[in-house]
Design a protein around this nucleic acid. Sequence first.
DNA 1: TATAAACCCTATAGTAACTATAGGGTCAAG
DNA 2: CTTGACCCTATAGTTACTATAGGGTTTATA
Lengths: 125, 125
Amino acid sequence: MKTIGKLAQSLNLNVETIRFYEREGLITQPTKPISGYRQYDETIAGQLRFITKAKMLGFTLKEIKSLMSMDNDCAQVELLSRQKLAIIREKISDLQRLEKVIVDMTNTCIQNDDPTYCPIIDALK
Amino acid sequence: MKTIGKLAQSLNLNVETIRFYEREGLITQPTKPISGYRQYDETIAGQLRFITKAKMLGFTLKEIKSLMSMDNDCAQVELLSRQKLAIIREKISDLQRLEKVIVDMTNTCIQNDDPTYCPIIDALK
DNA sequence: TATAAACCCTATAGTAACTATAGGGTCAAG
DNA sequence: CTTGACCCTATAGTTACTATAGGGTTTATA
């Protein structure tokens, strides 16, 4: 059994983040003996690892909450993953388009020596 | 001169968003005659177009505010743009890595017929 | 044994960039 | 002269936390 500080350290999480997940109902309530200090077992550590990994895949906390309750409904989990994949792919192509625009813009800046005029600012007008 | 509603409509912005930009000091204060209704001229419309375009390039409102005051210091504008470009490129490669992970994961799901087990959920544990 | 450092608690505010709501006032048309 | 469409300010809600204030508890040291 660990206190919140030890748990946070071992999982590389902020203490406040763990309390926040508790408030949001993402992890089960830890036992709170006389002192009022939270005591954590491996079960909750596992829930926190799950949350951390799912977050790295781009799931929101709301989605993670339902992922955790879906448990083994693979079809539903797969659907959510595919939706996430579609969003990621869209973001990638948006950013690639953006990258091109900014590259072009900054290039016009290099060739400019006029101190009273900036082509980037001009492009935004 | 337009009222806020007409301006919002012509720029495809939410009325509240315009008031929000005003509170944040991103646009100049419109005149407010007797009625108290804001009256907008082309200058402010131009500022709003500038903000919209800069936002599309991924600049934050804070950055846009300084972009607007940099005016024609091209070197400074170029620096900010290059920083933004670096961030965009990092985001792209992060998302591409993520895409691969999710593709692999969802593929393990397709080949699974066991209703008591989900390989995606398992990978997150 | 006393006390101080290190830890824990709750509750609240702040972050970004809005959006939505409550509870009003004003204006134009019928 | 009233109805509907518009405007006003101020405040709360969104996401996923982080930080702070103002306390209480536990542990280590003198």
